[in-house]
Structure formats: C-alpha cells, structure tokens
C-alpha cells in the first residue's frame, strides 16, 4: 500500500490505462462523485474557508461579525497564553515524536541481522494504545499517576517514598508526566513500523558492509538508518501531528494545568471559542495551527516523493 499522502497519487496512473479505454462517458464520473463531494464541500471545505475568513473578524459567535483585518493575529502574537500553549505543543513533540523514534531506532539497531519469530504477538500488543480511545488512555493514566495511584504506591513499596509526587498536579513534573504518557502512547507505533522495515532490508547489504569491515555502529549508520527512511518519515508525520493536535489526553489528564503548564493550542481554541465567546480570535489560532500542520505534512510529502515511491507496509 503506497501512502495516499505521496504525490504519486495525484497523477492519474497511466500504465493501467494506456491500452484499456476509459469509460466512454467521462461526465458520469461527476455523478458518482457528486453526493459525497457535496457533503464534503458543505461540512469540511466551506468551514475551512470560513475559519480563515472569521479570523479577520471581531466576532463572539453570536454577534454581527466586524471586520478588523489582521488585528486578531497581531493580538495573537502578543498573547502570552498563545506562546505558552504553542510552546507546550513543541515541548510535547520531544515526547511524542523524538523520544519514541529514538527508542524504536535503538531497538531496531539491535535486531538487524536477526530474523525474529513471533513478531505478530509483539506487533499486536505494541500497537494496542493506538486503537484505544485517547480519553480512555487519559482516564487510566490519570488514575495511575494520581497522588495515591499505583505508581506512587509502587514507589513507596520499593522504598523510594521520597520520590512520591502528585505528578499531574506538580508545576515541575506535570508537563513531563503528560509528555511521557505521549511517549508511551506513540513508541509502539514507531517500533511496529521500524521492525517491519528492518526485517525487509536485504541481508546482502549487511554482508557487503561486513566485507568492508564495518562495525556495528557503521552498519546501523550506513545500512539500517538509510533503509528505514520511509518508515521514519511516516512515524514523524503521524506523531508530530498528534503532538500538535493533542486535546483529549490533556483535557482528561490535567485540563491544561496546573496553571498553564500543560496548556496546548487546541485547548486554547476550545476555550476561546466556546467558553470566552471569542470565535474570531479562536479562528486565528486555528489558522496558525492548521498552517503548521499542513506545511509539515507537505514537506514530508515532498521528501517522500523525491525519494521515489517507496512502499511502507507492515
């Protein structure tokens, strides 16, 4: 399965079509497309345009919108809450994206050259967090990390009672605790991707590397790492977007607190729009976040298509 994200999908696959004739009446395509496209235009595309438009208005969500140009944006860039929240999103990228990828790469470096058995059990188990509702994940970790939760109980049990913390209520530890829940949430995805990728690397590459006297690090650096490039890109996009969009988990774990220590942009959008009735201002935040997500997605798409259409499969 090639990625739908790759640009190759945007050109019509001609090879399949060269000899076979397309259907005689191309206008029929519009009829097949119309019902879904209509819904899409009304409930996705039109709202996207409107979010961009509303970001230029002073608007409560109920009032008559007043055009104010780029004022929402100038206010935004002077708003401490905005910088704090987007800073937290990028702080979480460390935990959602970088840590899981490094962890998975470390594991993959160990297992190259060995054919592993029983991988389906590992794959099934490691991937479970990804299919769970993030609310459930949040509820479970809120309990585990609670003041009298199992993690603190465990610390007391092994004689490390001095380390006991109200993890999610602590100014210092809450961001790290929420981040580590993210690491826990994403590492399985990265491992599943990289292990599958590593298992399909041509063993002859390693033999060749060995003939040239490569040590284990050089094997990893010059064979494994380049071969895993497509998988690393996919893991990066998936986890980066998760970190930029995170809402459910923070909403349940800390509600953004204590103070604004774990506050993120999606919470800011939600509260500005639906609790403080500043829909225009919230739209401007949404525009900024969406642009970041789209730019990163498109950049990775570009890199993927430049690399050629490499298949990522498990």
């Amino acid at each position: 399965m090639t990625l739908p994200s790759s640009a190759s999908h945007l050109s019509t696959p001609k090879s399949k079509r060269g000899s076979g004739r397309p259907f005689a009446r191309p206008y029929q395509a519009y009829l097949f497309l119309a019902p879904g496209l209509l819904l899409y235009l009304v409930f996705v595309f039109y709202p996207i345009i409107n979010t961009a438009r509303y970001s230029l208005f002073d608007w409560t969500g109920f009032s008559e919108p007043v055009y104010i140009g780029l004022e929402n944006y100038t206010e935004l860039f002077a708003d401490n809450d905005f910088w704090k929240s987007i800073g937290n999103n990028f702080f979480f990228v460390t935990f959602y994206t970088i840590l899981p990828i490094l962890l998975a790469l470390f594991l993959t470096a160990l297992l190259t050259r060995s054919k592993l058995r029983g991988m389906s059990i590992y794959r099934t188990g490691l991937f479970i967090p990804q299919v769970m509702s993030s609310v459930v994940v949040g509820i479970i970790w809120r309990w585990l990390l609670g003041p009298t939760g199992p993690i603190n109980e465990f610390l007391r049990l092994i004689g490390l009672g001095g380390l006991v913390q109200p993890w999610l209520g602590s100014f210092t530890y809450a961001p790290i605790a929420v981040g580590l829940v993210g690491t826990w949430y994403e590492y399985g995805l990265c491992m599943v991707l990289f292990i599958a990728g590593a298992q399909s690397i041509d063993q002859e590459l390693y033999d060749a590397a060995r003939i040239f006297g490569a040590n284990a690090w050089q094997e990893f650096r010059y064979v494994t790492l380049p071969s895993l490039r497509p998988q690393i890109l996919v893991a990066f996009v998936l986890t980066f977007i998760a970190a930029m969009r995170v809402f459910d988990m923070v909403f349940v774990l800390t509600g953004g607190g204590p103070g604004k220590q774990t506050y993120v942009t999606s919470l800011l959008i939600y509260e500005e729009a639906f609790q403080r009735n500043r829909a225009g201002y919230a739209s401007a935040i949404a525009v900024v976040v969406t642009i970041i997500i789209i730019v990163v997605s498109l950049t990775v798409n570009y890199v993927q298509s430049r690399d050629g259409s490499q298949e990522v499969d498990i």
Binding site: L10, R245, I293
Partner: peptide, 26 residues
C-alpha cells in the same frame, strides 16, 4: 480530476479544530 483530488486531500490534513467554529455556527 486533479483539482478535485487536491481539494479532497485538504480534508485529509485539516484537524477538526480547523473547522469546528464554522461547523458549530452552520
């Protein structure tokens, strides 16, 4: 064809946060 496909590709990339306010109003 390609323009419409690009239009739909946009829907793959935007999060609900990007459409929620106009949707709520709609």
């Amino acid at each position: 064809q390609n323009v419409l496909l690009l239009l739909i590709l946009l829907g793959l990339m935007v999060p609900f946060e990007a459409v929620i306010i106009p949707l709520w109003q709609l």
